[in-house]
Simulated assay, not measured.
Amino acid sequence: MSSAENDLYQEVVLEHKRAPRNFGHLPHPTHQAQGTNPSCGDRIAVELDLQGDRVADIRFTGHACAICMASTSMMTEAVKGRDVAAAKALQQHFRAVLTGEEEPEEAPLGKLISLAGVRQYPSRIKCALLGWHALMHAIAQDGSGSTETVISDQEPV
Rank of each mutant, 00 (worst) to 15 (best):
A70S: 13
S71P: 04
M74N: 05
M74T: 02
M74Y: 06
M74V: 03
M75N: 09
M75G: 11
M75I: 12
E77C: 05
E77Y: 02
E77V: 05
A78D: 09
V79R: 12
V79K: 12
K80Q: 13
K80L: 08
G81T: 11
G81R: 07
R82H: 14
R82K: 14
D83M: 05
D83N: 15
V84G: 11
V84C: 14
A85K: 15
A85R: 14
A85Q: 15
A86K: 14
A86D: 15
A87M: 10
A87Q: 11
K88M: 11
K88T: 13
A89C: 08
A89E: 14
A89G: 12
L90E: 11
L90W: 11
Q91G: 12
Q91M: 10
Q92W: 05
H93T: 04
H93K: 05
F94R: 06
F94I: 12
F94Q: 14
R95C: 10
R95E: 13
A96G: 15
V97T: 12
V97R: 03
V97Y: 04
L98P: 04
L98I: 08
L98V: 13
T99R: 03
G100D: 01
G100W: 03
G100F: 05
G100E: 02
G100Y: 04
E101L: 08
E102Q: 15
E103R: 07
E103M: 07
E103S: 08
P104W: 10
E105G: 12
E105P: 03
A107Y: 04
L109S: 05
L109F: 02
G110R: 01
G110W: 03
G110K: 01
K111D: 12
K111T: 07
K111P: 01
K111L: 03
L112E: 03
L112P: 02
L112G: 06
I113G: 06
I113F: 00
S114M: 00
S114D: 07
L115E: 00
A116Y: 05
G117I: 02
G117V: 03
G117Y: 04
V118W: 01
Q120W: 03
Q120G: 06
